[in-house]
Design a protein around this nucleic acid. Sequence first.
DNA 1: GTTGTGACCTA
DNA 2: GTAGGTCACAACG
Length: 945
Amino acid sequence: MSEQKRVFLVDAYALIFRGYYAFIKNPRINSKGVDTSAIMGFMNSLLDVIKRERPDHLAVCFDKGGSADRVELFEAYKANRDATPEAIKTAIPYIMDILKAMHIPIMVKEGFEADDVIGTLSKQAEKEGFTTFMVTPDKDFAQLVSENIFMYRPVFGGGYETWGIPEIQKKFEVEDPLQVIDFLGMMGDASDNIPGLPGVGEKTAKKFLAQYGSLENLLAHTHELKGKMKEKIEANKELGILSKKLATIMLDVPVTFNAKDFELSAPDIPKVTEIFQELEFRRLIDNFVKTFTVETTESGAATAVPESKKTASASDLAGAGQFNLFGTASTSAEALPNTFSRQTIATTSHFYQSVAPGMATDLFIKNVMAQTCVCFDTETTGLNPLTATLVGIAFSWEVGKGFYLPVPANQEAAQAVVELIRPFFEAEHIEKVGQNLKYDIKVLDKYAIKVQGKLFDTMLAHYLINPDMRHNMDVLAETYLNYTPVSITELIGKKGKNQLSMRDVPLEAQTEYAVEDADITLQLKQHFETELGSANIEHLFNDIEIPLLRVLAAMELEGINLDADFLTSLSADLDTDIKILEAKIYDVAGETFNIASPKQLGIVLFENLKLVDKPKKTKTGQYATSEDILSYLAKDHEIIQDILDYRGLSKLKSTYIDALPTQIEPTTGRVHTDYMQTVAATGRLSSNNPNLQNIPIRTERGRQVRKAFIPRNADYILLAADYSQIELRIIAALSKEETMITAFKNGEDIHASTAAQVFNVPLSDVTREQRSNAKTVNFGIIYGVSAFGLSNQTNLSRSEAKELIETYYETYPKLKTYMSAQVDFARDNGYVQTVLGRRRYLKDINSRNGVVRGGAERNAVNAPIQGSAADIIKIAMIAIYNALEVGNYKSKMLLQVHDELVFDIYKPELEAMKMLIKTEMEQAFTLEVPLDVDLDTGINWLEAH
DNA sequence: GTTGTGACCTA
DNA sequence: GTAGGTCACAACG
């Protein structure tokens, strides 16, 4: 590496274009419909340069308004650039914002191109003793190369090559890089619309340069040329001169290279993360964070903590004479000079101790019991709380300090240690802080510990503060504390066959890792507490999400009984039918192929069988074979329905019928889903491993799966309780739309009622089709209508759909007012909220891009509706759970499916339960519209629904 | 082995 | 048009 100072000047548009075209076959479109290819491509390149080269000086140069001088010279100059793709235009403001957040200087000069700005700056920097690297793939820049100025060219397929004088001499076959101008003047440059000399290409230009040295000299000696070439060049001498001018990069742009301004400093990571989040650049966030942190972590880790300080033994404590667990923290490492550095365990003063058995543990327990607020974190042998066992528990109640209580592997010994700490967990007076407490609570439940007292879960807090972000602790620490915690993979390795268990990690490392987590979580709590207050969502946090966490933990631990034998027999039936369909399809197709491969299927249908003249393609260029497209073709070709059936049955078999029995937990014999409380942006729960919120119901075949969900035993019965039309009731109440409110109050069929109103017929005369269309519009309203979407969902044309929506709004004028009011609120405040004040931030609500803005507007309407429904059922769940606990009932709440709760009811409690559940659900929240809950019971979930 | 895509399941 | 999750395939490392 050169000892000289190095400055990197980035040619923004060149890299943006390059990035955009790199993705051209497979453009990156995010969920809001924004083409982010150009931004992604550019950021990848920029981060790559920073990662590889660690420049100390860097700037990004843009064009502005094109080059007036060059356009004056030649009308057609860079006409190509006028056809800038829309995706690149929209990318520019984002890239500008990102660069600002990264504290990278942006160089633009009205009326000049980036080439000229870079050229001028390079020469100035050279005078100041800098080595300059021009980051661009554009060969025009070769003319600027000198002993201190290099081209830094991205290479397709990854990597970079540096072009200095020798490389230029070789590539262009010139002596002096300045001759590159002559070279370009002769051969022209199609991408820049530099015409060049007619008939002169790369080969000829090189020959001329070798012979004449310059364009001018060539033109002065045209008499030496022969034939057609001579005629052409003599007739176009002026064009040659002009081309050379166009190709000449200006070195006198009124910009100044000020080294200080170009120094690369630490980026505003939260800000950048926020923008990346908005663009949905998940992996780029990681890459970005790594790029700006990686350097420092290796340097200090090994020397961070003197070994002698890591474990406090009883004798240490006794030696201290009195109760003093802390001693003096003397483990601070020097802050590292690197400007990118984020704090780590190696750079931060900390005092983490493991607690030895015996007297030290006794002293520790006494101390922890004297606290009022303690953060804890359990370390276990795995991620599944049902099978994992405790390895240790970390505690922290003061920033930078904490203790680690190891738990032995032997079950009896483990329980003995747990008994010592039981008073802490069961102490009402100690507030417990943690990250994802649901997990810790589930683990501790296996040791018969019920965690009592006030809870503060940092993951839940952050979910309410910023539901669109991710909430894992490492990200939170990096974002809010500018701190990179020890990575779990550093301890136990990447997942796979060689991954260690936490129990295999040396105690010192366990301590450092575990107590750090507790310490960080405690610090995050202090941060989030104030944010919850300023967003006015403490009520939602303390009275909904936190109590719900205990409810979900209980439901997950409970699990649900599954009739695996029944599914096995279904599987066999299904297998037969799938094989029959398969044979039929192969027969019609005249060949065997993989029907499950959309790629192969597309080729068979549209190339071999030629079912359609102009088949639709997906964004990746494959034939689209989605259900809605194939359905259109079903009546014309018998093979289509068979394919659809095949796919439906395969999905049913693989996802449900075959997968569910494998998810039975051997220790309990039941299926335990995991409810995610911090995933859905609207406030809903989600369910996985397995997902019990998408068990089939719509088709007869699929519905059979529900028969496999059965009560605990013959003394029990399943009960399903679902809210009837809760989202429509909410929108009716919030909008105060009297007609709709009245219909609900009268207990009418709301879709029929809507149809009667919209089509202006008596309720009794509403046809099936009218009701069906009204139902579609009703749902459309909840989702944020568009005529396009509506016509896709019905047999109505676009204009009929538009008319129906207009009539709908005339019928329910207040609904329309309400929806506009939501959008206006979002515009003014940047967020919308539910009945309980749960917020969803809508950054795009004022976007200039209509597609993006439209998406945000639909969210503005939908989020409060969907979110309020989620709020209400959460209230009901907490109330019911508490009532079941207080009443000491045997009946249990098992599942939540957005507007439905499923219970295992102890038969003698059935009547009491029906009353309790219906009442709590209907009274959970008072609206101007009554809430209505339907109850059903059965010996399986299908019967109960 | 991981990752993205297309397909399909739910409220 | 909203909000989720899981599967098989295919392409990448």
